[in-house]
Amino acid sequence: MAEAGLIAIGAGLALGLSALAAGWAESSIGAAAVGAMAENEKLFGKGLILTVIPETLVIFGLVIAILIIGLAG
């Protein structure tokens, strides 16, 4: 049972830390993107894309978390 607990903690860390990192990265991109949009509304699409680029971090975190839980069987 102790092993399962460690696996769960590992999965939680993988997802949580990557989400934190993505949020951190997106915060400054998002602020800049909204600033650019305030000047030119046409930049909405580009701003959106740039903002969601770090989202990949969470996805990788989620995938790793799922794989780790898969290890537990």
Binding site: T56, I59, F60, L62, V63, I66
Partner: peptide, 16 residues
């Protein structure tokens, strides 16, 4: 490589 793995989100977003 990371871009191809990035498509795993197709599954991961759904799982969430």
């Amino acid at each position: 490589a990371s871009q191809m793995l990035s498509y795993m989100r197709l599954g991961a977003v759904g799982l969430a």
